[in-house]
């Protein structure tokens, strides 16, 4: 197989052990701008491939059943639960994880700056998912009302902050974005 320079071949995995061994599928995905070609087992979820194979551990695994939102990533620009997305399904698609939210030069997204300034992260485990969901929200609604923010975060659980400072941070990032535009 031939791959161009930006393509990384990450194909060397421990062989699944038992007789039920299933065929691996080769997928090509772009993650935070980097292209990867991977051999994945059909039952691997995107979160597992991101964390265990690409070692992009910023995306968290809090439940595995779509309830907590810690695993939220952008798939072709739309937020999804990477724990409920099969890796084979994302062949040919573009993924943005929390590691790809800041600019490649390292400049933080306004949502990230606002999370820091407003104290919107405590233990931080929900934070990657919260940030990705917030980025998604502001991309579709640049000036959300408080209730819209709260509704949009329905798929992201936090046990530390009571969401107050998260909601404040998103509102502040939205205002800031607007000022920057206007």
């Amino acid at each position: 197989m031939n791959f161009d320079a930006t393509n990384r071949w990450v194909g060397c995995f421990t062989q699944p052990a038992d007789a039920k061994q299933m065929k691996h599928h080769v997928i090509r995905i772009t993650v935070n701008g980097d292209r990867h070609t991977l051999a994945v087992a059909p039952h691997w979820t995107l979160v597992e491939v991101l964390r265990e194979h690409l070692r992009l551990t910023g995306t968290k695994h809090g439940c595995g059943t779509g309830d907590c939102g810690a695993c939220t990533v952008l798939l072709d620009g739309r937020s999804v639960n990477s724990c409920l997305t099969l890796a084979v399904e994302v062949d040919g698609r573009e993924i943005t994880t929390i590691e790809g939210i800041a600019s490649s030069g390292g400049e933080l997204h306004p949502v990230q700056d606002a999370f820091i300034a407003h104290g919107a992260t405590q233990c931080g485990f929900c934070t990657p998912g919260m940030v990705v969901s917030s980025v998604q929200l502001l991309a579709t609604n640049s000036r959300p009302e408080e209730q819209e923010i709260r509704h949009a975060l329905g798929g992201n659980l936090c046990r530390c902050t009571g969401y107050t400072k998260i909601v404040e941070a998103i509102a502040a990032a939205a205002t800031q974005g607007e000022e920057a535009e206007g």
Partner: peptide, 11 residues
């Protein structure tokens, strides 16, 4: 939570 193994087809 991990998925059990299965075969995948995407016609």
């Amino acid at each position: 939570m991990r998925l059990p193994r299965f075969e995948y087809h995407a016609p």
